[in-house]
Design a protein around this nucleic acid. Structure first.
Lengths: 193, 193
DNA sequence: AGACGATACGGAACCGTGTTCCGTTTGGCA
DNA sequence: TGCCAAACGGAACACGGTTCCGTATCGTCT
């Protein structure tokens, strides 16, 4: 609930505005599925049956649109952290499971991992949202695992997540590259000593 | 020596063509340093004092230009592999040293790692050249280390290099993210068991 | 119901890139 | 010196993001 239409989502807005926003979210989701998160603005507008101006009115930057489309899944991922920590046998297992979840999310969204790492200013907000929401969750898992002596204590949640995100870039384009495997190796490298 | 002007570099070509090619290489190197490998074509042309058409005549794709600019360093990296294997105490140390070399190369070239991973068709050839030249070198190091029981035997050189390359994306943009550290962790994850 | 103002819409126009194409220039040979 | 293939330059085109403003619509107030 960090980036939003500031709580005024369904309230004092014209009916057509609300309709269009929903149409845009649906269209964007479809376009992202087909072309990745860099789907042309005009395509998304066409799919939604609106003009390009309407996109920019509802979502001033591309990041806003991407965040809106994926918010539910990011939230679900964030909420899974504490649950896993409570349910798993060891913090290390919980951490591994949670990273699996995160990786699964990233690799199934073409171009999302790339966008997270893009130096394009438009994606700054995307980067920020993902990090704000997920790094604290990761940090709790990591701290618990470190406290249990299961991972080396000198790794920050931020760099771990960035590393995992980077490893997911290009996943799915190339059958010889399995991001999940590489992430497993990275996680294995977290063991102490 | 994989991608080249086919051995005819200095021979039966007009003097101005040779001069312009060198000017372009110098200009591109400077532009890449300043703006990364995505430096605008017109900038490079202006720096070299030529028209944009001249760039495309000498280097039909951006990848050709990038490859030409960095060929020496890629070659040096490739040649360092066997040397390290001969000089180091264990194959595992040689592998680690060689990866350090590769990482150092990538992180000091702004945008190179990104370009290697770009899904842009223009960079296809870049990707291919790097892989053709370096994967075999990495494979020898990896095989030696695996034979010595120092790394798990089920990791392919290709995926390792892709993983390392991905981890280098965005290095230098963010002081909180140290690609070298992450690569070290990844390499640590290669240990057996 | 009718009118009116605020809200929202559409898409033409603009800008910055990469890329192509063709009329012009130039190097090198006869 | 004259010729022409080789090479050049940059205008023109393609394409995607972004802005802007005249127009249409909603919802309210009388």
């Amino acid at each position: 609930m960090a980036v939003d239409e500031s709580g005024v989502s369904g309230a004092r807005r014209r009916a057509d505005a609300r309709r269009n926003e929903q149409a845009l979210l649906d269209a964007a989701a479809a376009a992202f599925l087909a072309c990745g998160v860099n789907a042309p603005v005009r395509d998304i507008a066409a799919r939604a049956g609106v003009g390009v101006g309407t996109i920019y009115r509802h979502f001033p930057t591309r990041a806003d649109l991407v965040v809106a489309v994926y918010r539910h899944q990011v939230e679900a991922c964030a909420e899974a952290g504490p649950t896993l920590l409570a349910d798993c046998d060891t913090p290390c297992v919980a951490l591994a499971r949670w990273i699996d979840l995160f990786v699964e999310f990233l690799v199934t969204k073409h171009g999302l991992a790339e966008a997270l790492r893009s130096d394009d200013a438009a994606f700054e907000a995307l980067h920020a949202y993902f990090l704000d929401r997920l790094v604290p969750v990761c940090a709790r898992l990591l701290d618990a695992a470190a406290a249990a002596g299961e991972v080396r204590p000198d790794v920050a949640a931020y760099e771990l997540m960035r590393g995992v995100g980077n490893l997911c870039i290009g996943a799915g384009h190339d059958p010889r590259y399995d991001a999940r495997r590489l992430v497993d190796i990275l996680v294995a490298g977290l063991r102490p000593q």
